[in-house]
Design a protein around this nucleic acid. Structure first.
Length: 277
DNA sequence: AGGGGAACCCGTACGC
DNA sequence: TGCGTACGGGTTCCCC
């Protein structure tokens, strides 16, 4: 569930709270969430490490670390919460689902909590981190990302526009909720072939996408079911969703009953048959 | 190559 | 009530 606005919310809060902090020790409770590292290597890398900063890339939270051990190569912890994952600075409501626990030198605890455990925590050395970054597409909120770059990418695909928006290699950070919302705002039907878009439609799409992402970030993301921020609080954008989760309800613009299908890449897709062409 | 499908995981919803 | 089963959801990996 956490997409770009939700992981951005977590990353901003953690950067403010953790920049410069030192991790005393890490406890790995559920090793199956780990990627690209082992429990022993991760513990050694973070024992005594300083947190340089925290930022977001795609739908992941990246914690930049300066390890204390000279032979520790892990520089970045990449946390991808997927559906139920949470990075918490407060005590989790149910400790049964704590996967990782980091004790900070100042007495605080940062934990990775995940009920379904489809989320992951990767330990990256510089090489692996560059490889991971390189596999991801551009950030939609990056001002250097242009309409023509988006349009060029869309023109290469005969897939449905919604599927292409969610393809992390073409565009990073957009998931099911914001793909549905951006297409509604742009007046584009989700099933349209990506390469059928005119340039002015790609322009409307990029502007809609940026608007909806920025509006959601301003309200600290969408909590539809599971998303919680670093302090266990909910996001405020769910009340502003125009189509996602509103199948069979009236369109907010024209009142037409919203249509839904599950057949587009196996995910809930909702649109207004009148407003979206 | 690019697209399709399974696997990952477990709470929730639903059927019997 | 209690048990069993189907389902969902993004990403990765495998296969065609």
């Amino acid at each position: 569930m956490p997409e770009l606005p939700e992981t951005e919310t977590i990353a901003r809060d953690l950067d403010a709270a953790l920049r410069g902090a030192t991790i005393d020790a890490g406890e790995i409770v559920r090793a199956d969430v780990l990627r690209d590292t082992t429990p022993a290597a991760l513990r050694r890398a973070i024992a005594g490490a300083t947190i340089r900063g925290v930022h977001r890339r795609a739908k992941s939270i990246v914690i930049d670390c300066a390890p204390a051990a000279p032979d520790a190569t892990i520089q970045h912890l990449v946390v991808t919460p997927r559906f139920t994952g949470a990075l918490l600075l407060t005590a989790p409501r149910d400790d049964r689902y704590t996967c990782l626990r980091f004790a900070l030198r100042d007495g605080r605890t940062l934990c990775y909590h995940d009920v379904r455990r489809l989320g992951t925590v990767a330990g990256h050395d510089m090489r692996r981190h560059a490889e991971w970054q390189g596999a991801l597409g551009p950030e939609p909120l990056d001002p250097t990302f242009t309409v023509d770059a988006l349009w060029g990418s869309l023109r290469g695909s005969r897939q449905a526009i919604k599927t292409v928006l969610m393809d992390q290699r073409r565009l990073a950070g957009v998931g099911n909720i914001y793909a549905n919302e951006a297409l509604f705002r742009a007046g584009l039907r989700p099933t349209r072939a990506a390469r059928s878009l005119r340039r002015r439609e790609a322009d409307a799409l990029l502007r809609s996408l940026r608007e909806v992402l920025a509006a959601s970030i301003a309200l600290r993301g969408t909590t539809f079911r599971d998303f919680q921020d670093a302090y266990g609080a909910r996001g405020g954008f769910a009340a502003h969703l125009a189509v996602y989760g509103r199948a069979d309800a009236p369109c907010v613009t024209c009142g037409t009953v919203l249509r839904a299908t599950h057949r587009l890449a196996g995910r809930q897709t909702v649109w207004c048959p009148t407003c979206q062409r």
